[in-house]
Nucleic acid binder design. Structure first.
Lengths: 246, 246
DNA sequence: TTGATGACCGATCGATCGATCGGTAGAGTG
DNA sequence: CACTCTACCGATCGATCGATCGGTCATCAA
């Protein structure tokens, strides 16, 4: 029975997540976690999909739990970085909100599986990792809270309760990863734009009495924001290249 | 070791879900499914929490899967009935939307655990049950789709895409069961009102050019809608009484 | 040619899974 | 008193769980 050869890889060359054995394992695990849930996915399922034995899995990973935690930490870290970059230099609340929403929705469409797992499997991780992921999430939600607060203070936004509005916004945007399909009728950028308008309406964004829409904003174009998201996604999907470059 | 006596129960008397052994099992299972997820919950966990042996469990239930499916079918059926009752006699789209949102949010706060399980564990049920639950859910979402469509046709609503708006609304409302706590600062009725306003803003509800809020509607009061929800919840939480009455 | 290293596998560990068995205690019925 | 029924329980079933063991084969540097 032939063994798999080590994958030749030139430094700096772009490498898809599935081309390395470790990448194949992560991709297999991600697909199964997203489709069946973490608890319902066995290591034999992962091994089968990756085309390996269960023993070989442990040559590349620590444990099933560590795999999940890695997905979550990576996902949240990249999302935070993308969001910071998207609102950077944007000082009006409406523009910030539109940037946050489009970044979040872009992330949840372009990497729907990892986003879904990161959002929904928190209860499966142990106390230590749970705390770490929750801290990341709190930091991310702070970006939203600050944007909503500044909009409310300046009078550009009007809503009854900031906390409830933030929770509603975030759940609405998280939900994208639950129904999005790349075979659906809408491109991620269309969905992102649509959600930005929904969010602006939701918070009652107005300027000189008139409702503000995405088209009215002198804001970063959606293509630019999605490019930011893709940069973050590419950054971790092949951590090998990052190691080579460093 | 003393055996548990059969619980004496007068016909028609109100009976909390936990007072019968079957009710205790369902309550225990529900709490665990909601907290840890269906797959992560073992029948030994359920038995321990209900104060029984695992063998005794099967005196009252068919299987772990049947328990889950029952939760889902009950939950969806009651939600549909409550929603139909809430929009009954309400012919303006804004009033219908406000009724749907408040019913949904009421349901997801007053029975947060069952709502959470019904929404999030669909992937754990087998093909046959999956189809059945999906049909129920499709029927429910049709109520929302029709309301959004009629509002768009009449010009009272304005949004870019009806499907995306519906999905965003539903995910936003489903999310309530994920963060609601009865020890939180807001009463279910306050959350429901807040969400109704968010939804009306989101769909761009206007009347003669002015934004429509919940307070502007000649709509069923929230207390009345929550009472409808509670009636539905009471209806199934003690199926024993229903059997006695029938 | 040898020795080290990376990539992997077959076999198997103890634990836990959902579910079932043959029972037993006690209340109710005739 | 005998019988039935409900309400359970201890023991255990085969299956599957995540994880680990001691290997084997191929590559490559010395």
């Amino acid at each position: 029975m032939p063994r798999r050869q080590p994958v030749p890889r030139a430094a700096g060359q772009a490498t898809a997540a599935e081309s390395s054995t470790k990448g194949r394992i992560e991709q297999a695990a991600l697909e199964l976690f997203a489709a069946k849930g973490f608890e319902a996915t066995g290591i034999r399922d992962i091994a089968d999909r990756a085309g390996l034995s269960t023993a070989a899995l442990y040559h590349y990973m620590g444990s099933k739990d560590e795999l999940l935690v890695a997905f979550m930490v990576e996902s949240m870290t990249e999302l935070i970085r993308a969001a910071r970059a998207a609102i950077d230099g944007c000082d009006d609340p409406a523009g910030q909100l539109a940037a946050l929403v489009r970044t979040h929705v872009g992330f949840h469409t372009l990497d729907a599986q990892r986003s879904l797992v990161a959002d929904d499997e928190l209860r499966a991780v142990s106390d230590v990792a749970f705390t770490k992921v929750m801290q990341l999430r709190d930091g991310y939600e702070l970006l939203w809270a600050e944007t909503l607060d500044s909009g409310a203070r300046s009078g550009e936004f009007s809503f009854v309760d900031a906390r409830i509005t933030r929770l509603a916004l975030l759940e609405m945007c998280n939900g994208v990863a639950r129904w999005y399909s790349d075979r659906g009728p809408k491109h991620p950028s269309e969905i992102a734009d649509c959600f930005a308008d929904l969010a602006l309406s939701m918070v009652g964004a107005t300027r000189s009495g008139q409702p503000v829409r995405l088209a009215d904003l002198r804001s970063r174009p959606t293509a630019e924001i999605l490019a930011l998201v893709e940069t973050e996604l590419r950054g971790s999907n092949d951590s090998l290249d990052a190691a080579v470059i460093a």
